[in-house]
Design a binder for these strands. Structure first.
Lengths: 265, 265
DNA sequence: AATATATTAATGTCAGACATTTTTGGCAAT
DNA sequence: ATTGCCAAAAATGTCTGACATTAATATATT
């Protein structure tokens, strides 16, 4: 018996980094999820066996199984007794699972297709959510939106506070989803983080472009405050159009984006 | 030491049924999830301890922990070492998690607020998805929609085939979400099942109302086939308006529903 | 050659002990 | 009486080793 195993792929396993010391709630699952999200395995590939993972990370089988259970719950892998662990196709991933958003946001170089898909979704849905928010926002919702906007303004000048600016940006859009006062739309607000974080990482904001972005955000806020659904929709389209340009996504000439460009077979 | 335990609630625990023999992949998690979805515990209540659950279901702690892990991943409960297991508020539940949809669909008497929330979401979003589908549907997508529609027609007359009819109904709408050719919208198609199943259980379809429903569905199909986004949107609004009436949800007089009626505090 | 059977390799489950974290209660000092 | 510290209890988290179950594969048998 040599050290060779027929279907395990030691090279891929060896690439996996050790989980960070202060790696949050489930650092192991995060490391494994990141590896899959980065495309180290293709759809249908066999994932390393439990015992190999135990050896590589020097932890008990129990923890490995917990981590794999989390991946399985998010649709990243499929496990069957006797066969092993298979990596599922991207179309099967539970993109709406908050856990998945967290993993995507923590990824250093985000999955390009996923960022495009999520943004295409935002492009079609978010103007609509702004419309709902303009109809349903309470004073509390408005306060949350405004606080986020003020945070964006305060951190706009300083280029060393880009992360903080991104957080306020996320909070701004998330507050709009919450203001729709529907639990489903509200959950969807969690999707934004990866898309916005990716945008921040890739774009080099010019000073004037930042001013422009802030002005567009302000228009959204004002439209919602004044209960003007149509204005809120249009202002949100303007915000996203700028983001689309920065992200290199073609938003076309239609009123609400053209997701047809992103096919899934 | 008496048989009395200070914070456990034996009465609630005793109400839990035994999991069905052929209870699918994780029957235990399903039983526990159904108990929470049915409202047996309020937000912030402490869930039974692992060892009590072990005793009640006569299974090992391992399986109990797996089940609780699934509930935790869906946001139904929150577990912390030393404190115990708390039931989370409905606003924290991961409504977009496919696992959650499955649990909701399997519930005999669905959670009323959740059904309303999901349907309010459909009311606002689905006409829009139909619009996207009209723009992006391929021949394959059309075939899938048509197959589902034919199934609905075939099982319409026979009142003993209501479940089959519901399945085709779900397939019809799901196919439209898929035809949007965006992975995020596509995932959302999984949300429909609970709402539609609940509708079927509660409504007593008259023969003429069924004919009417089929006619409305046919109009959606035709509009998508002919690549007429506006017609698809309007036809879908008509389909949902009928469903809303059957479900007792006020869809108001606005073009796209009034989710403001469903507040979450 | 086709079918039945044993082997193997993977995940799933059980049981018991121990580790860690949070709460709680008691005790002492101010 | 209140505060602060410390120890015990109670819950979840982890480790370990064994066995069960399932699916694929190799091997025998007719």
């Amino acid at each position: 018996m040599t050290a060779f195993s027929p279907q395990a792929k030691p090279s891929q396993l060896a690439q996996l980094p050790q989980p960070a010391e202060a790696g949050g709630a489930n650092a192991l699952a995060t490391v494994l999820a990141h590896a899959i999200l980065s495309g180290h395995w293709a759809s249908g590939d066999t994932f390393p066996r439990e015992l190999d993972l135990c050896q590589h990370f020097a932890v008990s089988r129990n923890r490995i199984r917990n981590a794999l259970g989390a991946l399985s719950a998010s649709g990243l892998i499929e496990r069957t007794a006797g066969r092993g662990t298979l990596v599922r196709d991207i179309a099967e991933w539970h993109l709406l699972d908050p856990q998945m958003s967290e993993w995507m946001a923590g990824l250093e170089s985000p999955h390009p297709q996923l960022v495009r898909e999520v943004f295409a979704f935002r492009l079609s849905a978010e103007p609509f959510v702004a419309e709902l928010a303009a109809l349903a926002a309470t004073a509390h919702d408005l306060a949350r939106i405004e606080t986020a906007f003020d945070g964006m303004c305060a951190s706009a000048d300083d280029p060393t506070r880009r992360e903080e600016h991104a957080e306020h940006d996320v909070a701004f859009h998330d507050a709009i989803y919450r203001a729709s006062h529907n639990l489903v739309w509200r959950q969807m607000g969690l999707l934004l983080r990866p898309s916005i974080v990716a945008l921040i990482q890739h774009s080099h904001h010019q000073a004037d472009s930042l001013d422009d972005s802030l002005a567009r955000h302000r228009r959204v806020l004002e439209a919602i405050r004044l209960r003007q659904p149509d204005a809120a929709r249009e202002a949100t389209e303007q915000v996203l159009a700028r983001t689309a340009a920065d992200l290199g996504v073609d938003n076309g000439d239609r009123r609400l984006g053209r997701p047809a460009a992103f096919s899934d077979g």
